[in-house]
Design a protein around this nucleic acid. Structure first.
Lengths: 253, 253
DNA sequence: CGCCGATTTGACTCAGATCAAGGTTTGTGG
DNA sequence: CCACAAACCTTGATCTGAGTCAAATCGGCG
């Protein structure tokens, strides 16, 4: 956005050991030496523009990707052309596991804005993980997180009202902002209303109306894609009470 | 069902190499020797009864499980008590990946009928996979399949009508029957209507009505939980045309 | 400025939920 | 083996949250 300095990032040397996102990509179970040995594996670092595909359904799956900057959506496609967005991937988050089943990507991955990613070739990652138990552990965690994310979304699509869905979405973005040490109560959404609607399994108009309602209730402030959360607790209460201030008995969340 | 011989399966020696389900559990990339070395890892073989929990949300995740007989459902739980079934696991299918993220199961796993499972301890599986590249490959495939299954369900819950959902469900069961060399057009469902409804994100009454409608249309025959598919093509057409007889251009399914 | 896509808002509609009631199957204890 | 209860399933009537359709407005951008 705005004026950007022209930097050819293709030639920048990528070093996991010097990356300020490494705590998000590989947060646990890997020590400094382990991280350093990742440097040799991270093969590419390419910028892609808004609406560009990182990979398409049907492409050979040769790598997983870590988002450095920007935001990338992944979506499944049905035989009759319907699409369902299954994830928005922010800086420090990984994508590409959808190709693990048979070596062919089952999803499309599209940039929501100009984004850059690290490419981690699967074969090399695998070879390295034979040597580093820490990496193997980490891979397992990454997989587990993907699965548990998907399950959260299944619960959302299967059981929640549209109001709960949007509240849940805003809280998810907010908490991910916090993880990155950005403001948790003020941020810009990188996705269009249509993308939010698709992701949440509702109509665009419903998203639009809910934003208006939340604003009228003084819970959030909406200025186009700029969101300010005014009453975090109100959002949390919509999704499920016990998340809020103190956990109630029986609640793990 | 009916009269069963009393066999204490707890003491049966488990051998992957002799298991007739191994083609489903570990279908590719592992040769006979690899499979044989799995024998030492498969630790338990325990029968669980209808409504018993294989594991609960919050339990330490120490293993993944392969279903030998019966059927097991896995479900997520929201903070306010809602449950969403995320999978039905039939003979030869694996479950338990939901514990990979942080070593704690995020799902409940419950038997729909008396079932037996193989227990594959994660630490030993990991140790073995350091030696067997084939196993590591296979683990990756298993993960990929889980992810792609979840994505299919996301598409179903996010975009399909209730009619498409039920058709899709029946086709999924049917194709899994075929994989097991059972009849693809005649089978017993092991789950209650309520479970189907929950899984598909609709009301029980809707499931009941749709079964009645499909039967009236001569597409299936329903006798309680016994299903006979009379017009497979009609079901396929409901989900998306190009799956049917011949693939149309642009369709991968 | 004028066009185009993104977003909002209002009016109307409907698929599927909810409510209500009855029928059927299964399990249990006597 | 039967009686009874509980769980499961079906069917009908009614209601409603959210979709669809239509139109106005906004924001960029060439």
């Amino acid at each position: 956005m705005g004026t950007l300095k022209r930097i050819d990032v293709n030639h920048l040397k990528v070093r996991c050991s010097e990356c300020n996102l490494r705590e998000l990509c590989f947060p646990h179970g890997m020590n400094v030496e382990d991280i350093s040995s990742m440097d040799a594996v991270v093969k590419q670092f390419k910028p892609i523009h808004k609406n560009d595909y990182l990979y398409r359904r049907g492409d050979a799956a040769v790598a997983i990707y870590a988002v450095r900057t920007g935001c990338i959506k992944t979506m499944t496609e049905s035989t009759n052309g319907d699409e369902q967005i299954v994830g928005f991937h922010m800086a420090g988050e990984l994508l590409g596991l959808d190709g693990f089943a048979d070596g062919i990507h089952a999803c499309n991955a599209v940039a929501l804005e100009t984004s850059s990613v690290c490419k981690l070739p699967i074969d090399q990652l695998e070879a390295l993980s034979q040597k580093l138990p820490g990496l193997q552990n980490q891979m397992r965690r990454i997989v587990g997180k993907e699965v548990s994310n998907d399950h959260k979304l299944l619960l959302l699509l299967g059981k929640m009202t549209s109001e709960e869905r949007l509240a849940s979405f805003l809280l998810s973005v907010s908490s991910r902002m916090l993880e990155r040490n950005w403001k948790e109560d003020e941020f810009n959404l990188s996705m269009a209303r249509q993308d939010i609607a698709n992701y949440l399994g509702v109509a665009v108009e419903t998203v639009s109306r809910l934003f208006a309602t939340f604003q009228k209730q003084g819970i959030i402030n909406v200025d186009r894609r700029h969101i300010t959360i005014l009453q975090m607790e109100a959002l949390k209460a919509m999704v499920g009470d016990c998340v809020s201030t103190n956990k109630k008995p029986g609640c793990v969340g």
